[in-house]
Design a protein around this nucleic acid. Structure first.
Lengths: 113, 113
DNA sequence: TTTATATATTCAAATATACTAATATTTGCA
DNA sequence: TGCAAATATTAGTATATTTGAATATATAAA
């Protein structure tokens, strides 16, 4: 089981628009640095920085192919998180058990002292 | 479906050790500020700051009970994410389809140019 | 109506993160 | 061997986040 610190680090690594797009792209298959440079509109050094951050935290890895570095997903938690993240919380649907809901002015008096 | 920006914001809000512990505690039930003050070892203002951040992003909400504010989970994505985060990636198990693995020195030559 | 309790807000300092620009490294090929 | 392509690294600056300290607000109780 991941420690609290590991969970925080993992979330922080994913919590960036460029890195999310990188990870989503890697879910489709192996990609090299210049592939990302194309469809993300950021500089090559910046792509490298994000990739090496993701690698440092064990989320992705690469193999060398000629002068290309081919990156791929390593941690299988990524597709799981990405899928859940897309689920929207639709207001108006019945709230799940974990979520008591206040109805204008009428409060659950669950905790008295 | 959540936009890229919304997904990033959500992850950033969760990605903090204190806030993860707050959310895990709220998964067990409704809690007021002083409850958190006890088991987290941080100041009351800091607890409030984290709670109001979580609330600002629609993750939690509260109802008033006397002079207490009782916080509860609102976004049902939280328990889902928390559960996934605990799954560890155990090296040595067969890698999932999304994850080509390099064996020392022998590289998959998938992408030639 | 004063006081104590519970919580929130504000501001400033410390720290962490992100980006750009410049430069370095590595490898394939002429 | 020397050049060009692909990628990485470093340093500096800008920006965001976190926290503590002080203060403010709201409400129940005396």
């Amino acid at each position: 089981m991941r420690s609290l610190g590991q969970r925080v680090e993992l979330l922080k690594v994913i919590a960036h628009p460029v890195r999310i797009r990188i990870l989503e792209e890697l879910m489709k298959g192996v990609k090299c640095v210049s592939d990302f440079e194309e469809f993300l509109e950021i500089s090559q050094p910046n792509v490298s920085q994000h990739l090496s951050l993701l690698r440092r935290f064990g989320v992705i890895d690469f193999y060398v192919d000629g002068r290309l570095k081919c990156y791929f997903l390593v941690d299988p938690i990524i597709p799981d998180i990405m899928e859940i993240l897309k689920k929207d919380y639709v207001k108006g649907l019945p709230a799940p058990a974990c979520c008591p809901v206040t109805k204008k002015g009428v409060y659950p008096g669950e905790r008295k002292r």
